[in-house]
Design a protein around this nucleic acid. Structure first.
Lengths: 261, 261
DNA sequence: TCACCTTGTTTCGTGAAGCGAAACGCAGTC
DNA sequence: GACTGCGTTTCGCTTCACGAAACAAGGTGA
């Protein structure tokens, strides 16, 4: 038994996690006393933890049988993490290959509430000081990642996007919703998104979407290069990105977080 | 926003769960300040929660990048729950059908550390007052559930079973390891286990194993009936149980918790 | 039917320990 | 080389988590 607390552990949380682990490990819904006996904790304490975890939605309290089990919130998190974890794992090798092939910066981003969040960034050279950091959010309309995803979103979601304000990041950033709609249309036909200096001057990105188990675009991979460099590699790069995106898509679990109506 | 605390909630736990949910929802590993800003909590507080959750193995702390993400313990629990949840969901309908067909008590049990834990129990009639309750543990050697599972366990695991003491529950309970081994052998050939008054006098059970995604016997369904009643239905009952077990097995996710060597 | 036992809920006073402001130190960055 | 941002540590206050014990309720058995 390793110690479950360290210098900074807050005890109520650490002990509640013991309860958490115990309950989630059981095949059946458990009673208060069962947990008390299994973990050798005071009844009142366990009672409060169970209540707290149930209130948080991580547990479900069957009031009829007075039994506690894993709740919807936990299952939801488990699904999300399964998708994200698989996404990152598979993408990891693919991104490596892309960097090896093209010696340019390669990104992985996910769709999060009408924005793109950078999840993985591989900078080919130290001198490339542009680019975001992991966890940063960029608008959909000014990145190839965002445009690649947007192109395959349901129409009504796209309409929500264009109704929002378009932040002007460079002088080339799309600020007109008509132009954005046209770009989206072209992207869908072309199969990959192009963004030329709209997010950062002198830099061109191409992006390809990744779909979840239900065909919903949840992420994208992109390759960023100086304008002049991009011109000569764009064909092969797009091809390579599409291959990577296809393989990543194929690896994802057959579930979705979006009600695919 | 529903309230996340109720009368009995312990605040540190409730707030730590907010951190938990936030971090697990992100596609990328997060930094301390990111959580602080997202949840609007004091830095020190979040820091301690992250440490606590990491110490519990639910989170993983990347000390190089100083980022926190979901940990192995969480993924393990998610897998376990996925299996158990699917097991119970699918079994639910199957157990209903079995009770409808035979008007006898039907059980679902899982293997847990060399014992059988009852997960679901359907008593056909109120007068049947024998039987265990959900969460109770019975020995492998005296129940049809246990024998059904044991019959398909790896040989070395079976040897561990027979080396333990065999509790004598009735005068017919197997106490001899040689007899147990023979029963196991017969069960494997027959395809279902029979237990006649070994766990409770006058009662006969038959059981059929359920396998996880890797072919490891993790659970079993059984039907319990008075000796004389069982004699006339055993053939059809075994057939029906095997059908149910097959369908439940097929529904389980393609993963296992047992290192399938 | 009544008494008993088990299990979950509520109360309550104590003091342990969770809290968070602020200071510190360490990297990266311009 | 100063600066900024971020994670860690300290520290004293006071909150609020704790758990014993009493209470309530449901089920069980005589």
């Amino acid at each position: 038994m390793g110690k479950v607390v360290d210098q900074y552990s807050v005890l109520p949380v650490a002990k509640a996690m013991q309860v958490f682990v115990y309950v989630a490990s059981q095949a059946h819904d458990v009673t208060l006393t069962e947990v008390v006996q299994a973990l050798n904790m005071p009844k009142t304490t366990v009672f409060r933890y169970l209540q707290t975890l149930s209130a948080a939605g991580l547990f479900a309290h069957d009031v009829v049988l007075d039994r506690y089990g894993v709740g919807h919130r936990f299952r939801e998190l488990a699904r999300i993490d399964d998708i994200h974890h698989t996404l990152r794992s598979t993408a990891d090798g693919e991104l490596d290959d892309l960097v090896d092939s093209f010696r340019q910066t390669v990104n992985l981003g996910v769709l999060a509430k009408h924005e793109v969040v950078y999840v993985d960034i591989r900078e080919a050279t130290r001198t490339q000081r542009f680019q975001a950091r992991v966890g940063h959010r960029h608008p959909m309309h000014s990145t190839s990642l965002g445009k690649a995803i947007a192109a395959f979103l349901p129409l009504e979601t796209i309409e929500q996007l264009v109704s929002a304000d378009f932040e002007q990041r460079t002088y080339r950033t799309l600020t007109d919703s008509r132009t954005f709609r046209r770009h989206v249309e072209e992207t869908r036909k072309r199969g990959f998104a192009i963004e030329t200096g709209e997010n950062e001057d002198g830099v061109t990105c191409i992006g390809v979407p990744i779909f979840d188990g239900k065909g919903y675009p949840i992420a994208a991979v992109s390759l960023t290069a100086p304008d002049n460099r991009m011109r000569v590699i764009i064909e092969q790069a797009a091809e390579a990105l599409q291959g990577a995106a296809r393989r990543i898509t194929a690896s994802l679990p057959p579930v979705s977080l979006h009600s695919s109506a």
